[in-house]
Every structure is written in C-alpha cells, then in structure tokens.
Design a protein around this nucleic acid. Sequence first.
RNA 1: GCCGCGGUGGCAGAACUUGGUUAAUGCGCUUGCUUCAGAAGCAAGUGAGAGCUCCACUCUCGUGUGGGUUCAAAUCCCGCCCGCGGCGCCA
Length: 906
Amino acid sequence: MTDAEVDFNKIAKKWQKKWADSGIFKVREEPKKKKFYCLEMFPYPSGAGLHMGHVRNYAIGDCHARYKRMRGFNVLYPMGYDAFGLPAENAAIKNKINPKKWTEDNMALMKSQQKQLGLSYDWDRELATCYPEYYGWNQWIFLKMLEKGLAYKKKALANWCPSCKTVLANEQVVDGGCWRCHSPVEQKELEQWFLKITAYADQLLTDLDKLGNWPERVKVMQKNWIGKSEGVTTTFKVKDMDIKFSVFDSVPQTFMAQTFTVIAPEHPAVKELVKGTKHEKQVMEFVERIKRKKATDKFDIEKDMEGIFTGRYLEYPLAGDRLLPIWVASFVVYEYGSGVVNCSAHDKRDFDFARKYEIPLHPVMHPPDAKEAEKVRNLEYCYYKDPEGILDEPAKFKGRKWGDVREDIVRHLESTGYGKKEVNYKLRDWLISRQRYWGTPIPVVYCKKCGIVGVPEKELPVMLPEPEKVKFTGEGNPLDSCGEFVNVKCPKCKADARRETDTMDTFVDSSWYFLRYCSNKEQKMPFDQKAAEYWMPVDQYIGGIEHAVMHLLYARFFTKVLRDLKLVDADEPFSNLLCQGMVLKDGAVMSKSKGNVVDPRTIIEKFGPDTARLFILFMAMPEKELEWSDKGVEGSFRLLRKIYSLATKKLSYGNGKGLLSKDKQVLSKTHSTIKKTTEMVEEFRLNAAIGGVIELVNVLSKYSEGEVNKEVYKEALLNLTLLAAPFAPHIAEELWEIQGRKGFASLQNWPEYEEEKIDKEAEAMEQLVHTTLSDFETVLQLAKIEKPKEVVLVVAPGWKYELFRILKEELKKTRDQRALINTCLAEKDIKPHGQEVAKIVQAVLKDPGKLPQMILGKEKEQEAYAAAKETIEKEYGAKVKVEDAEKSKEQKARQAMPGKPAIVVR
RNA sequence: GCCGCGGUGGCAGAACUUGGUUAAUGCGCUUGCUUCAGAAGCAAGUGAGAGCUCCACUCUCGUGUGGGUUCAAAUCCCGCCCGCGGCGCCA
C-alpha cells in the first residue's frame, strides 16, 4: 500500500451519520411501489451485546435489504428487541438489579453495535416487547382468544423447570431438559393457561405446502412436530367393570390380530383397574417406578420396555368373545391418543413386548411367499406394514392386500358401531403460563362470584408493577408479592377479586411482532390493518435454525388466528425463510464456556464494519456453518483496501481512440460480473457473488497499472461501486463520492447487464475465457498470424480431446517454435491461458493449410462463434463458415474426425 | 429405525440446475522484487505420483466408494460407506 492508510472506521462513521441525517432508510406505505419486507429474527438483549451469530444474521439481511432497495423495491427493514425473559429477572434476583433498567441498558448496547455495523434499518419502527405499548396488545390478543375459546385454563401435568422455577411448553423441553438452562424437567400438576394451537393443527400442516421457499428440513421438522396420523378409534368395555376405553389405531387393517391391551403408567384408570385386587400393590409399585424413571433418566425403548399385568381384560367383540389382557406398559405415551393401545402381532414393538412376557399372538396377515408365510405363522419374526401382505382375517377380507384394503376396513369397523374414523396429532396445546415477573401479565381476574373474568379492553394494558414494588427472592412468582397488583376489584361485580399473576411465555411476544413493525405507533389496535395489508407477508425472514419449531410454528399460529379475527389477510407470515448457519471457531460453536468467542467489537474496531460484513458473507454460503478465520478477515480487509485504491490511484490514460482488446475485456468483464453477481445475490449465494466481484477487482487492478481507457475505467469503477454497495456499503458510498457522484450509492439503481452496449467480440471472448478453453482467442490468433482463406467452425462431441491429440502429433514434428509463439502471445497481451493455445498456434504455424475444424452445439458457443466469425471476416479478411450441427452433431463429428482436427462438444 | 442434508487440493468453498481439459475466489504455502528490518504491497508458482542431468516437456492417477448410461460424468442413474441435523416409543 503506497497511499496513506485508509481509516475505514472513519469512513463508516461519516456515512452512518449521513444516512441517519438524511433519513434515507425510512419507509412509508407507497401503494404504487412494489414492497419488500425483509426481516431478521429480533434479538434478545442479553448483557453480552452482539455476538458473531447476530452479525452474520444482520449482514445477510442488510445485504438483501440493500439489494432489494437498489432493485427499486419499497423495502421495510425494521429492528426491535425481544425484551422480556428470564435473564433480566435472574439478574434482578442475583444482583439486585432492576430488570427493566438491565434490559434497557442491554438494548442500548445492542443498538449501538447495530448502528456501528451500518445496518440500513428504519429505526423509527423500532419496538421492544417489554413496554406496555407492545405487551398491552399481547393482552388484547389474548382476550380475543379467550373470547373465541382459543385461550383456556386447565389443570394439567406441566413441565416444570426447577431451576427457572417456571413451567415450560412442550416445545421448550429439549432432551428432557429445559431449553434454556438444560436442567432436568419435572412433571408437576398445575392450573395453567393454554392456547389452543391444536385447533389449527390441520391448517398448520397443510399450509406448509404453501411455503415453497422454506428449507425442506424446517418443513419436515414442523410436520413431525404436528404429527398427524389418521386412523380408527374403537371403544370397548373392561370386563366386570364400568370402564370403557377408547383406543386409537392408525393401522386398522390388522385389527383381527389384536390380542392384548397396554395402558400408560400415568393413566388414572390404572388405579381403578387394580383397586382391591391382588395385583394392586405390584402394579402401583411398577407405575411409580416407571414414572420416576421417565421423569429423570433418558428413557430408552430398547432397554426399558417393561410391563405388568393388571389382572383385567378388555372385551373385544370384534373377534367373537376374545378378551384382551390389559397390561401396564412403560412405552405407552399417556399424552398421545387415549393412552391406551391395543396390540397385535403385526407391530414390531407389540411383538417384542408379547414375546418378552409370553403373551399369545395371533397373526392375521402373511407375505405372498409361502415359505415366509409359514415363518410368520410360527411367529419367527414380526411381519408388519407390507403393502403386499395378504390378510387372512376377517373372513370378509380374506385374500385382500394390506396395501389397498385400508379404506374398506375402516368402513367395516365403523359399521360395527365400535369404531370411528379419527385423526390424531402429536401437537399439544401451547402452555403459556409462566410464574415469572418479567413478562406480559395475563389479563384475567379471579372473582369468587364471577369466576374467571377477562380484563375489559378499555382497562388495558394491565401494567406490570414497577420493579421496586416487587420482591425478587428467587422463590415463587415475584408478582405474588405485590399486593397492589394482586388485589383488585372484579370488573363485573366490583367485589374483591384476585388478579392472575402468571405472565405469558415470551414466545407470545415474538409471535406477532412482525405485524407491529408495519405500524409501530398505532394506538387503537395492535397494528394498522391497512399497513399490514400493504406490508405482509414478510418476503424474506432470516434467522437461526433453532427456531425451526417453536417460534416459527407459534408465529404461523398467531397469523392464522389474527386472520380469522379479520385483522390480516395473510395466511402465512413468512413467504421465504433462510436459516443461517452457525459461526464456528476451531470446529466448535462459539461459546463462552469453550473460550472460543470472537467479539465482533474487536473486529470492527480494527478493520471497520465493512470488513466484518464482507468476510462473514464471503466465507460460507449463508445456510452453512462458517468457520471463523482471522486470516480470512485480513483477506477481506486487503480486498477493501484494493477496491479503495482503484478509485484513488493515479492512472495513465491512453490516447482514447478506439478500444484495445484489453479495454474490451475489462468492459466485458464488468458486465459479465454484473450478470453473475445479480444471479448469485438473487439465489442468496452471497459468497459466490462476492467471489465474482473480487474477480472484477483483480482484473481492474491489473488493468489500472497500464494505460487505461478513461471511459472504460470509469464505467467499470462505477459498476463495481454499485455491485459492492450491498456488501460493503460504507466504502461504496465513499467511492461514489470520490467518483464525483451526487446522492447516495445506496439509493442508486442496481446495474443492469447491458448486452447491446458491449462489444460483441469482447463479449464472446468473455463467455469463453474462464469457462472453457479460449477457442475464440485461438481462432483470432490463427487468423491474425496466417490470414487464412477460410476457417470452418463446426460443432460435435469430443472435440477437445481429439483436437489436442492431433495437435500433439503436429507438435511432435515441430521444433523450436516456442520463441515465436511467446512473442505473438505477448503482443496480443493475452495471458497464456493454457498450453493448448500455444499448441494450436504451433500446429498452425507448422502447417497453415491444415486448420482445425470446430463443431459447435451449445447456444452460447454458437453465439460466441458467430461473433468470432464476424470479427475475423471484418478484421482479417478471412472467410468463416459456421455450421449448425445441433441435429446430427454426433454424426458430423464422426465424419469430421478422421484425419482432420475436430471439435467434439455437445 | 425413519426423514432431511451433505462428502471436491493443505483449508474454506466454486463448478452439479444445462455432462465437455475439475478446482472460480479467498486463505495458507514456495520463490523473487521492494524494505535497515518487519508488516503491507507487487510478480510468478502451488492436486498427487512418476519419468527426464537441466530446461522444454511427457505419462499415470485424481471430486467418499463400487457399478451403470455416454464419444465424454464432480455433474445423470443404481448399490454401498461415512458425516451432520431432526424425529424417537405416536399404536
């Protein structure tokens, strides 16, 4: 670097200020303009500030937002904070810090870092969920759901995290532990608030198909989570008792094989089944033991398949007077279906269980192969779910295939009066109660007379009491300690009443924040309908894969509920989803405990925000994991410096008359780079896009060292500036200014690939230079040196191989032509692209009469050769014939091959 | 077990949609120039192996693995192996 060192941070600050002062990133609804809503998952303001994962997230999002803006879209690109949550409260308990203050400090820190990165947010739309202006609308939506029966309270076994001292939703239990602190989750019976997400199970499932641009794996995860299964529920009586069991069966075809029944240990009916019998003691001991095991350890089906007979039988009139012994079995899931299952020989797990406890089995289906059928009848192995399987029973369906008898069996079961077609889901209702302070108060009052009363709309928001009025002891819900909050009058009868002290799961906050951004100042409603109509759905959502189920499912649910409330018309909140990969260091996720954290601040301070952003975008595809590399950061830094010097260095201009071939190449490179970069950015292959830009930088860098054509250089530099704008916006602005342009680079139109403006020859050259052998150059060389009378260009398969084999032969006969070749290459200012060029030239020099024939096929190449033909004819006066060999290319190729050089390409 | 994704030089990662001399781009490394020296910068080189006194050059093998289609396969088809992620008793 010969110039004075550039202070990229100074440049960054300068432009950040100009952007802010001019307000260029503020947006309004403009019905005439095409809108684009670009959104990143808003961060939780933790005390540590931004980490690399955030930087990556925002670099991707900002790049996209800037690109779309330059493409002429009216871009909504907002930022906010998911500000409620446990860490704030824990800080309050541990360090006696005001959770509100703590959160606000963190938000301020984060915001300053985001500003330091130069992200093009419309900061006027900022929101934070911990303020009544926001959470009041959580309450409003909750009340609407309460009205609709979508919010309800029930006593249920809940997942309890003893460390966080709160309840967790099913989705928040990961590997039997708390999703946040990983402590083992306990089961506790509590009265809790639920949102009826199951009412939308089917829609949430089927609408996944509308999400064409979501990653497949996310869709699969959601699908698994919803877990739809269709089948038949049959209801039978327990012998000698007044108990009936409904049993769900998704594989009803083999119902005649059912020989025993299993019931979940947690099932309350177990107690009744054994009450007062000789089995009682043993069975109840078993139940307790299994419950404990399930609660603590990782429960493993393979090892822990256990059961115990209850002494009771289920009547099974479908098979005459068959009685099914009822067992308590460890593997039965109480929460799924009815917690009772009928078992048969045609299920792997049932089969294994029956063998273990020597329960009789009764196969009713056999494989087509007679030998195998015999094995199945002898119970040598479990035969299940084979579409080719042939039924033996019931008699009515004997001989039918398992694969196509299903519907008939279902109808048959329904006709018996015992069965009913039913759909089951794994999805459970969403438990939103949290026994915590730092969250949205659930707007409900308990009155002795009126029962559960929703707080009237006009009294919203139910404000969280100031932290000073609450005791943070670490035991129980802090809100219970605030009498002023708890003791209220019933809104209906004005009698003394008690306020609900549960607060909402913070996932409620993030389930509709994208709607609030559309009109974050709205006072009368959660959001302005017209604004939401204009902006929704989010066109591009970007965030971590860890939210594949929870957040994304809840947000989809809320959107559907709000749609049914006629507040939005979008079915789905996010049309495109990008799940960015993790940022790794030394092969592991960056984490404090591993000590491999790289603080974005140090990188920004040292190299400036553009370097940090460019590096993080260039190092890997957005979806993939990114391995941090300090050296790579320096590489990006060097690149930016190189770009900067392209605009500031002294140039020596040529006489400016006509374009030299190198000028044409630069021009052509410029435009092909526009083309490539545009394609890559559209496809979110930002790493490849940057790779392309770097190529252009390298070409320009080299070009700028010799004599340059003023106009060509100007055009190249201008386009380079614009192409770089989404990736390194500050430097792009600076270059823009250096080039004497007015306004902001950020607001310019994205450059277009202008085909007609480019010299055809150079374009043709361009298309071939990097992808394949520069055939065109070769032909030009030949034409220039020998001024041949005729060049035949034809297309056929295998050309390169054949051509070069022949040329090699030629070469062998030649000696000492190297000097000459090198001379002509130098003169033409062409970097010897391959030995091949030299070889061809050499061959031609040896025997000018024997020219290679080339047979062209591909559209691209045809164009290239057409251009070549034109040039050669014009400039060198030789005749060129281009043959279209598309239809019979192989035939032609073969004809062309013997004795003569040929090109074999399809 | 089921589902999804992937496997390319020393590393990250292009090229796979549309089969055409595999390896764009960056990092690293080697050599040279520059420098008091270092850093930075610039220039050339860099898949592996072998042959050749040297140079020039030549040969063989190379995209996890084994097959197939094709004049031609990283690319298309089939089998297998390995890795990552998700689901996990779902009746």
